[in-house]
């Protein structure tokens, strides 16, 4: 046991206060994240991605994965926020986004059908996958 010298008592008080506030912060953090942690703990990575993207977007990305071969490029027309788009591009790699490509993937936007493109998937005209014919 460390001897509690009189002149050092306030150091121990400082450590105690610091540790208490750290403990409180950690508790608040754990409490905030607990619902997600409970839901995702030990789940496979795809379940975690589904949670991160949300059901609709995840379903769309799965369809892109299924229909666009690896190493192909596709044009992504979407109304996604920047960070969701970035994650989607990362998730779909080695399929790469390009303004001119053999596939058009539309998410969350109305899109007019053009000739010369075969529809691979269409849900409510807001999730569309087309391949150039």
């Amino acid at each position: 046991m460390i001897p509690l010298k009189e002149k050092n008592i306030w150091i121990y008080v400082f450590i105690l206060v610091w540790a208490s506030i750290w403990g409180r912060n950690l508790f608040v953090d754990i409490k905030k994240d607990w619902p997600d942690t409970k839901k995702l703990f030990g789940r496979p990575v795809e379940d975690k991605w589904e949670y991160v993207f949300g059901g609709d977007l995840y379903l769309f990305l799965q369809n892109v994965k299924k229909n666009v071969p690896e190493d192909s490029s596709f044009t992504l027309i979407d109304g996604l926020e920047h960070f969701k788009r970035v994650r989607a591009e990362y998730y779909l790699y080695p399929r790469t986004v390009s303004p001119v490509a053999g596939y058009i993937c539309v998410y969350g936007r109305e899109y007019t059908v053009e000739e010369g493109w075969k529809t691979l998937y269409n849900r409510d005209r807001k999730m569309i996958l087309r391949k150039m014919t």
Partner: peptide, 9 residues
């Protein structure tokens, strides 16, 4: 736990 709870996001 936090590191492995989410994929890299």
């Amino acid at each position: 736990i936090k590191t492995f709870n989410y994929p890299i996001i």
